[in-house]
């Protein structure tokens, strides 16, 4: 708690003295001069951002950071990961402590309008759900009237729950924990009947339970949670770079470009693939990047499907299906604008 508070103070202090300095150079210039991208990720969320046994940061959010680093430097490993707390994440971005925030953050109107930040494209379409023990015999979230529900503080979680039970016309007991570990422990011990969070997060909570089969995810999705990376406001060029690094992952999947075949695909006759991988036109230059930025992203981290499968997919502990996170032409919501 103390560390969080110190971080908040530091961010506030940085906001007071450092913000002018950070604004004098564009983010791209700052990042290039530093030789590294600084990316804000979550503390410990397996599947999104968590260090593996070798200390390397793994996860979906971490790979988004790597693709931006690959676009800027041609090397996906030129990233420093900064662990951001849920309460201080926006301040860390505002104050210039991090260049981009890739931390399971929901894009909302008031955040974009009042926090001095801009959101990039949605990288993961999520929604808030509820996880309950199977033994409870509950089939719908509407039955959970008068139950106790464990959540993490702030974010939109508690507000969504409150709104949901107001529509259903019931009451519930909200038990809020600052740390994910206490939150999970309270749920497993039966202090709460249900635990609520983004569905992706619940998959992660279920995966680390002693016996994952004892828990069931309720069918309701009580909110829309489009998770997107965020950058500081008023730096159009940097926002473009972040957005198009994400779009490149999606476009590569659409065109069937994968990490293993990117060198072959670079010789393709398809004009769009040529533009994407730097074989034709000079699209990279327009963003102030190397012309092979798209090639570097796919070579470094793969395409969207590879990133998803590696971190969240059915072969991982989280075992998530693609759901709405499939390509538009397969009935999903991923729709990268044309690269031209």
């Amino acid at each position: 708690m103390k560390r969080k508070f110190l971080a908040l103070c530091a961010a506030t202090a940085a906001l007071m003295v450092g913000a002018t300095a950070a604004q004098s150079a564009t983010t791209l210039e700052t990042v290039k001069a530093r030789g590294k991208l600084i990316c804000g990720v979550s503390l410990s969320t397996p599947g999104f951002a968590a260090a593996d046994d070798k200390g390397r940061m793994q996860g979906f959010d971490a790979d988004i950071c790597r693709s931006i680093a690959a676009a800027v430097f041609g090397d996906p490993d030129k990233v420093d990961f900064v662990l951001t707390n849920i309460n201080t994440r926006f301040q860390a971005l505002q104050s210039g402590e991090i260049d981009v925030l890739s931390r399971q953050t929901t894009a909302t109107f008031s955040r974009e309008a009042s926090l001095g930040i801009d959101f990039g494209p949605t990288v993961f379409y999520d929604g808030q759900g509820l996880l309950v023990p199977k033994s409870l015999g509950v089939a719908s979230a509407k039955e959970l009237t008068d139950a106790a529900i464990c959540t993490l503080p702030g974010t939109t979680t508690s507000q969504n729950l409150t709104d949901f039970f107001r529509t259903v016309g019931g009451k519930f007991e909200l038990v809020v924990f600052e740390s994910p570990d206490e939150n999970r422990a309270a749920f497993y011990s039966g202090r709460c009947e249900a635990i609520s969070s983004d569905r992706s997060d619940l998959a992660s909570i279920r995966a680390v339970a002693n016996n994952p089969d004892d828990y069931v995810l309720l069918p309701e999705t009580i909110s829309k949670e489009p998770l997107a990376p965020a950058v500081r406001q008023n730096d159009s060029n940097w926002r473009d770079i972040v957005s198009w690094s994400v779009y490149m992952l999606m476009a590569a999947e659409e065109k069937g470009i994968i990490q293993a075949n990117v060198d072959e695909m670079a010789k393709s006759e398809d004009p769009e693939i040529q533009r994407m991988l730097g074989g034709a036109d000079e699209l990279g230059k327009m963003l102030g990047l190397d012309n092979k930025w798209g090639y570097n992203i796919v070579k470094g981290v793969g395409n969207y499907a590879e990133v998803f499968d590696r971190n969240l997919g059915e072969k991982t502990k989280l075992g998530m299906t693609r759901g709405p996170n499939t390509q538009w032409n397969a009935g999903g919501l991923l729709y990268a604008p044309p690269v031209r």
């Binding site: 708690m1 908040l8 961010a11 506030t12 906001l15 849920i86 309460n87 201080t88 926006f90 301040q91 008031s110 955040r111 009042s114 926090l115 464990c150 503080p153 702030g154 974010t155 939109t156 508690s158 507000q159 038990v175 809020v176 924990f177 600052e178 740390s179 206490e182 309270a186």
Partner: peptide, 30 residues
């Protein structure tokens, strides 16, 4: 008593934190 936040008791700091998160107005809330 502000350590309440660690074990989920809704004290001043915990409520303020939630509000800070929703409004984003960290400096004012602090």
């Amino acid at each position: 008593s502000s350590l309440a936040i660690a074990i989920g008791y809704p004290d001043l700091v915990m409520v303020s934190n939630t509000i800070m998160n929703q409004t984003g107005q960290a400096m004012e809330t602090i």
